[in-house]
Design a protein around this nucleic acid. Structure first.
Lengths: 343, 343
DNA sequence: GTGAAAGCGCTAACAT
DNA sequence: ATGTTAGCGCTTTCAC
């Protein structure tokens, strides 16, 4: 079914039918109703390609997912983020175009997206310090919104980010309130913007209570199970071991739990642990998870907001940068509470 | 830069330039070379919409991701699968169109994809028994490949699946070889096809050694941390507790580990655990993970194969169903080995 | 309020 | 081996 056929059935011109379906004001309500009913009855939708060609707009947003050539992993954040963004696109009749590229080819992926005019805008994931993609997209005149921030605070592009600093500050304060003094932070690599901010929050909370940060209680490394395991093992052997752990990643946390268990300690009784579960928010689903406290910020919601911001930018055709800093949602697990400072 | 401009620069007709770029045989090699160089120099790519309209082919594949209206979760399998499929599309100049829809609207999503002619084919995720989508897509005449199988064995559509049965049979055999007799299976809901197959494999391995399956050692439930925790706790209180666990999901496994730790037992010393990590294959990245054995089957590879199969189906324009059963890759962790049957 | 016709950028059938 | 032309299905002027 195409426009020609449909308009023929209705005894109207293609123009009128098109106008009726696209909510042009000049068509009479009676006609519009009749047209819309016929369209849905015959399961008509405008051909994407013809429409894109005629309007010059693609009604599609691109997401470029770089796959590291070294790690064979996909950042699990993407799945949730994409889900949120997808919801918004669906509501606004937009399509989502996903390009999976080796991280080396990322730039050419954007160039090609622009040249083929296949998307109206893109979302940038995982910004790096001095990100070249930002300059490129400006050159290509392709609207974009960044999920996360590149390190420089005062940059003039649109972004959506989670307040990592405050989230870790609050988590640390919570542990301090329980009486803990020796609190360890198992963090990600500080080349990642969010890890730096998390550390800042942690240190700020300690500083507020005049507690010095101890370098032996601070790990900044890849977020793997193995690192989590070794780090905790090493720390528990200190003459003054930590009584609480703040863990930046769910994955690392698996190792942390294992090391604690192997040491014969029990979380929530002998030791406090707070895990930031940003990366694996789907875990929430598992009924009550009594043993830990999670500072979670809903990646999915970030996806929604990012997508909406981009659509707004495109619709209003302004390049006015917008920013949105999301406060992390904090959930305290049952048995983190009772733990007391042990020394 | 469009075709008109480019051909003007080159002093050639649009036709010739188009033919040169699309590798038509009749154009001379000298011309082709000149054209391709000019194209890449001016960063020309054919406009997707015009091309799609003219050819009637979209060069795009759709993935419909249903988001459960009850659980606020995204199946983590998708991320890896999508990554694999995306690689194949990139190699073959195809785009990937992602539609995130509430699971109720799934059918209309397919209808709309077909009506708008926006994709050449689709991948179906997570097939259910008597899946209505299959019938629908045939009606719509939209090529598709299914990731997984609906329960009926002899169905006449293309699919790619992992040999879940054999994978769990082998894992069980491995534990039996270690001397274990009381082996527990923490499985997913048996309404899911893969869970049923996994159970079959487990029971087959036991039957081969004339060991009766004990219902108290078999859990079929949602794959959450909480269920893992409770199930193991309950089983360890049995008069004849299991000496080994076979766990169907990484998420459940988190609870399993916790329960084992809480009971004062140590994995790899007091008890054997094999975890199927299909869902979270990115965990592999964490250096050596010494404590458990993983039967993993590389979802990413499944994505590649699925995508390739679909592209082949489309290219050859045959609806001949193809099938591919992937053998799961089995990795034995260091310290699973030493464990012996304890009773 | 409705219709006729041009044109978006490309490919493909039909020349030559 | 290259060029001419029609047309893919839609939107959008312009005319009524």
């Amino acid at each position: 079914m195409n426009l020609k056929e449909l308009s023929h059935i209705l005894g109207l011109s293609q123009t009128t039918v098109s106008r009726a379906l696209n909510n042009y004001p000049e068509v009479s309500e009676a006609t519009r109703k009749r047209v819309k009913e016929a369209a849905s009855h015959h399961n008509y939708s405008a051909n994407t390609w013809a429409k894109g060609l005629a309007t010059g707009r693609s009604m599609a947003i691109g997401h470029v997912i770089p796959i590291s050539t070294q790690h064979e992993i996909v950042n699990p954040v993407f799945a949730d983020f994409i889900a949120g963004a997808g919801e918004v696109y669906a509501r606004n009749d937009h399509d989502m175009l996903l390009s999976v590229v080796a991280d080396i080819d990322e730039e050419s992926a954007y160039r090609s997206l622009a040249a083929k005019a296949s998307v109206d805008g893109v979302i940038i994931h995982g910004p790096r310090a001095n990100d070249t993609r930002i300059k490129l997209l400006r050159e290509l005149n392709l609207p974009f919104v960044v999920h996360g921030r590149a390190s420089d605070e005062h940059s003039d592009y649109s972004w959506v980010d989670v307040n990592n600093r405050r989230s870790f500050q609050r988590a640390t304060e919570y542990l301090l309130d329980l009486g803990h003094i020796r609190i360890a932070l198992i963090n990600g690599l500080e080349s990642m913007d969010f890890a730096r901010r998390r550390k800042d929050g942690y240190l700020a909370a300690l500083a507020d209570r005049n507690i010095a940060g101890h370098s032996e209680l601070l790990v900044s490394d890849e977020m793997t199970e193995d690192i989590g395991y070794r780090s905790v093992q090493k720390m528990l052997r200190l003459t003054q071991p930590p009584t609480a752990f703040l863990v930046s990643s769910m994955i690392t946390a698996i190792g942390v739990r294992r090391a604690i268990g192997d040491a014969g300690l029990k979380m929530g009784r002998d030791i406090s642990v707070i895990i930031h579960d940003d990366e694996l928010s789907y875990l929430r689903n598992g009924g009550d998870i009594p043993i830990f406290t999670a500072a979670r910020s809903s990646v999915r919601e970030a996806g929604r907001i990012c997508a909406q911001m981009l659509l707004d930018n495109i619709a209003q055709n302004d390049q006015e940068p917008r920013h949105r800093l999301l406060e992390a949602e904090i959930t305290i697990g049952e048995s983190t509470g009772p733990v007391r400072h042990r020394s």
